[in-house]
């Protein structure tokens, strides 16, 4: 018999809005990505200068994780695995890196950009902030894959590889962005099922 797990909190960041468990927690009137992420950061009242050095995918992931993990007691002491996914991988930053090396006469690759040319760096940024040394993986799909994420999180919990799993879809491509992150826990009220995940993602 399968153990029942639960979706403890879920956060959505898209269209200049942030919702936590479907409640609006922040709304902005800017369409400019950099400004929007900065305003969300200010809303969270964080003091974390490294945030401004991150690429947009890491910023989006970091912010969504922050809304969820700030409501989890002692997140630094817990074994929280991270499983993220998206469509564009790190393409948004890959393009910036490509532009910096396109011209052989003006060849100045930026180390600060290059380090973000992998999507799983976003997981690293969350792990550093919350001091997590846990299982993690980043997958690339065409669209949000509730079935895969649900099964992957379940296996991690079944095998006691983690106490809870921070899962999500974090996609950035030019000015388009979408963040959906949730925490799968052993306790809670909202059942962790493919159907429920699909519902809260689509609503």
């Amino acid at each position: 018999m399968n153990t029942q797990y639960y979706i403890k909190n879920y956060c959505k960041i898209k269209e200049a809005r942030v919702t936590l468990n479907d409640n609006l927690v922040f709304e902005d009137d800017t369409n400019e990505l950099k400004s929007f992420f900065k305003n969300v950061y200010k809303h969270l009242e964080l003091k974390y200068a490294k945030f401004f050095k991150m690429d947009n995918l890491s910023k989006l992931s970091f912010l969504a994780a922050e809304y969820i993990l700030q409501n989890v007691e002692n997140s630094t002491d817990r074994n929280i695995a991270i499983v993220l996914s998206n469509r564009a991988s790190s393409l948004d930053t890959d393009r910036k890196h490509q532009n910096s090396i396109q011209d052989k006469e003006n060849y100045y690759p930026s180390p600060a950009i290059f380090v973000y040319t992998l999507p799983n760096i976003a997981i690293g940024e969350i792990s550093i902030k919350h001091q997590l040394k846990s299982e993690n993986a980043f997958f690339v799909f065409d669209t949000f894959n509730a079935e895969f994420l649900c099964n992957y999180a379940r296996v991690l919990l079944d095998k006691n590889k983690a106490e809870s799993v921070l899962c999500g879809w974090v996609d950035v491509d030019n000015d388009n962005y979408e963040g959906f992150m949730y925490l799968v826990s052993r306790k809670g009220e909202l059942k962790h099922t493919i159907k429920e995940l699909t519902n809260i993602y689509q609503n």
Partner: peptide, 17 residues
Amino acid sequence: LGLDSIDALELIVMLDK
């Protein structure tokens, strides 16, 4: 300023560029 090793590399690029 609390700069890190990546910042150091960035400064090396800046000197060159």
